[in-house]
Nucleic acid binder design. Structure first.
Length: 433
RNA sequence: GGAGAGGUGGCUGAGUGGUUGAAAGCGCACGCCUGGAGAGCGUGAGUACCCCAAAAGGGUAUCGGGGGUUCGAAUCCCCCCCUCUCCGCCA
């Protein structure tokens, strides 16, 4: 969430930055400031009353110790009314508090100054590209055709057991998926200095709130209930991305500066309701309720936030480079930026069978927005507690990468070559019908 | 799922209604001491919020979380969460 002190001290700046997102959130600033002012007013009053009560209580203790029971009783009588007033004010504070927090939790992060202005994905500038679109001496097939011919994915049986939006990888398809996961984990842990973690796949709502998914996007998630007890719902959710759990690993901690940077790499399945998303029902692997992803997380000192951000984009790019896939890097404009992010790059890989770029990675610096929500801090050299920058990036998402790979390396006879970097993990050079 | 034990500051651990924000020990930081280190001695130190232009200073809250009793709660009552042990079940 945003720093209430910043909103208090520079409301115009905050309004202006929020306005660039085009979501109308700047209108909340005045409401927030009014609540904040009321809160402080109430606090000042109730706290001075409590101070008074504490003084009298101590005095009563002293009087009782000195056997002056009558005097103590008199004091008690006096103070009784104070308690009622305090309780009343406490309730008022709690009300204002929760109203203020609810507002704060709904306000998105401020876009970084370097983020281009824009309304939608159409305004995202391409920052750089790698490679060229491959050419074919034949009409390239879609991954759906290729997968069915080669027996890599059984969509029909996946739908039979789980409905649409699920894939059953079979035989060499399953092995290819596993090889890609293994390849990426090895790359990031051995060459980019990330620590591998394999986290729980279900988390409590506090974690979703911590990364900024709650309360705004509550309908996107799969809630899990143990048994048939509806009261259990809302206790645990399937993670929509490893970010949800890994970014929260140190929540409510005060780290030492020497602990930073923390770099984690995690392979996990990801689960998404995709409620209302166009194309869930379309064939193929492009939009799924369940997909695999290798995620990168960094927790760094604010001074190093944007340096680390650029570095992370390069780490994700190396996956696509090593696999020899054509891709482009896009910088999200203000209007397309995610709720928690201050700056985001997307990696879009070319899928010849689709004739389109597919988003396989999104690398964001959320600055201290998430750290503040999850009460994650570190103690700097001066002994000050500060919120670190929390960054997340896909390194990369699997299903679409699978699509791009199969479509890019398809041959005229319907077979698929395996790029050299993947061969040690896949153990074969090609997939033939 | 059943039975029991327990959750106190960075850690260990005292504390069952009244100067207890919390003994003691360890660890930590700084200073003295030392050629240097250690030992020893001394000093300091939680977190969040509020008041104050700021600093200084003052205040409130915080002993797993929430609620209650009371003038006053780490201490009493209720609910919840978590950890550990044993049993059951189970990959």
């Amino acid at each position: 969430m945003l720093d209430i002190k910043l909103i208090r001290e520079a409301p115009d700046f905050v309004r202006q930055r929020l306005a660039t997102r085009g979501g109308g959130d700047e209108a909340l600033v005045d409401e927030l400031l009014a609540l904040d002012e009321r809160r402080r007013k109430l606090l000042a009053e109730v706290e001075s009353l409590k101070a008074q009560r504490n003084r009298v209580s101590k005095e009563i203790g002293r009087l009782l110790a000195e056997q002056k029971t009558a005097e103590a009783e008199a004091r008690k009588q006096e103070t009784r009314a104070l308690g009622d007033r305090i309780a009343e004010l406490d309730r008022a504070v709690a009300e204002v508090d929760s109203a203020r927090d609810a507002l704060l939790l709904r306000m998105p992060n401020l876009p970084h100054a370097s983020v281009p202005m824009g309304r939608s994905s159409a305004d995202n500038p391409v920052v750089r590209t790698f490679g060229d679109r491959p050419t074919f001496g034949f009409a390239p097939r879609t991954h759906v055709e290729l997968c069915e011919r080669l027996g890599l994915v059984d969509f029909a049986r996946a739908a039979k057991v789980s409905g649409s939006g699920f894939a059953l990888y079979t035989g060499r398809g399953a092995r290819l998926e596993r090889a890609l996961i293994q390849f990426m984990l090895e790359l990031h842990t051995r060459e980019h200095g990330y620590t591998e973690v394999w986290p729980p796949l279900m988390v409590g709502p506090a974690c979703l709130e911590g990364v900024g998914q709650f309360p705004k996007f509550k309908d996107q998630y799969y809630g899990v209930a143990e048994g048939d007890d509806p009261a259990q719902l809302g206790k645990l959710y399937l993670i929509p991305t490893a970010e949800t759990v890994v970014a929260n690993l140190h929540r409510e901690e005060i780290l030492r500066e020497s602990d930073l940077p923390l770099r984690y790499c995690a392979y996990t399945p990801c689960f998404r309701g995709e409620a209302g998303a166009a194309g869930v029902g379309t064939r193929g692997l492009i939009r799924m309720h369940q997909f695999d992803k290798v995620e990168l997380i960094q927790i760094v000192a604010p001074e190093r936030g944007y340096e680390a951000h650029e570095e992370m984009v390069r780490h994700a790019e190396r996956v696509l480079q090593a696999l020899g896939l054509h891709y482009r890097v896009v910088l999200l404009c203000t209007g397309d930026l995610g709720f928690a992010s201050a700056k985001t790059y997307d990696l879009e890989v070319w899928a010849p069978g689709q004739g389109a770029y597919l988003e396989v990675s999104s690398v964001s610096n959320c600055e201290d927005f998430q750290a503040r929500r999850m009460r994650l801090r570190y103690k700097d050299a001066q002994g000050q507690n500060r919120h670190p920058h929390v960054l997340n990036g896909s390194g990369t998402a699997l299903a679409r990468l699978f699509v791009a790979l199969v479509e890019t390396y398809q041959q005229a006879d319907g077979s698929v070559r395996i790029p050299a970097a993947l061969q040690p993990f896949f153990q074969e050079e090609q997939i033939v019908p």
